[in-house]
Design a protein around this nucleic acid. Structure first.
Lengths: 168, 168
DNA sequence: GTCTGATATCTTGATATCAAGATTTTTGGA
DNA sequence: TCCAAAAATCTTGATATCAAGATATCAGAC
């Protein structure tokens, strides 16, 4: 008996005509995403980072040397609006984790680059974060974990989460 | 090839020593929860509702006649803080979807009750919302859907999402 | 009966986010 | 060359949220 079972039971009592089988899946998806996020936030907080700060640092770190992206690339990588990116970059710049400079060839463009301090801060937090993720899933059996991954991957497909592969 | 595959590939290139198998699961969980939420929001918007407004109306509707909960019960049902509940209830009250009144027996307590207008607004949106959820999952095969549900349920267990059943 | 701690709700101040629009720069005709 | 449209970024104003604390009420010990 979990939270969604209780909710489904309440709908069964109130509206027995409704089909709640989709809610059973989607309700769990959102609820557990929230619960997982809370656990991730706790570890980021131990390292003095907000979750969104870690996300930006990670995107830059993943980009590879010289650890640089434009605000527009950050918008798209992090699924956020341009105003949010401006705000995030300002905050990280004030903490000394990134620098901003105009691109000389196309002066509309800005280059956001990870500083050594930003990379170091990310490194430590990333280590703890990866352990945290592993710990959260460690209670799942191998089979359960495969079911979850395979089910989520199928969901990604129907949600249209696909990326073109490079042409030869 | 999906977004998470791309991210995992970038980590493989940058930090081949890291174990990213947990990220493959948790990254998809949060990303797809976001993508699903965006689709749900779109349908709520067609009915003039914010997602959080629908959540409050649903919690009251599920409570059964007389469709009444206290702010504290809403806090716990919706996993939000008390300040957020105050704000939400005020907004719904101003739209005429709920009423607030002091409990006469315990004057610390407030009773938030769904109005007929609130129930009607919820009814229509709920219908469309349920169809939307069903539509989102309709691209999954029966087996994929079972894998997803079963994997999520297992995840709920390890996240401690359990509710006591009533004693006899 | 009278405190003291617990409980329920609301308030305050800060902040992350978004939508919409403003600004600057580049590009591609005519 | 010049202009209109496109592109990249930033600004503005609104709002949902939270953490922490304030306020009001109740319950239990004595």
């Amino acid at each position: 008996m979990d939270t969604l079972d209780r909710i489904l039971g309440e709908w069964e009592r109130e509206r027995p005509d409704l089909d709640v089988s989709a809610l059973a899946v989607i309700g769990r998806l959102s609820r557990y995403a929230d619960l997982v996020q809370a656990r991730l936030d706790a570890v980021f907080a131990e390292h003095g980072l907000q979750s969104w700060e870690f996300d930006v640092l990670s995107a830059l770190r993943r980009a590879g040397s010289p650890y640089e992206l434009t605000p527009g690339e950050l918008d798209r990588a992090l699924l956020i609006t341009s105003g949010t990116t401006t705000h995030r970059v300002q905050r990280l710049e004030s903490r000394g984790f990134v620098t901003r400079r105009r691109d000389e060839d196309d002066r509309r463009v800005v280059r956001v680059r990870l500083t050594d301090a930003g990379r170091a801060a990310h490194e430590v937090a990333h280590e703890a974060h990866a352990e945290n993720e592993t710990r959260i899933l460690s209670g799942l059996s191998e089979g359960e974990r495969e079911e979850l991954l395979s089910g989520l991957t199928a969901l990604g497909r129907v949600l249209g989460d696909t990326v073109e592969t490079e042409r030869a």
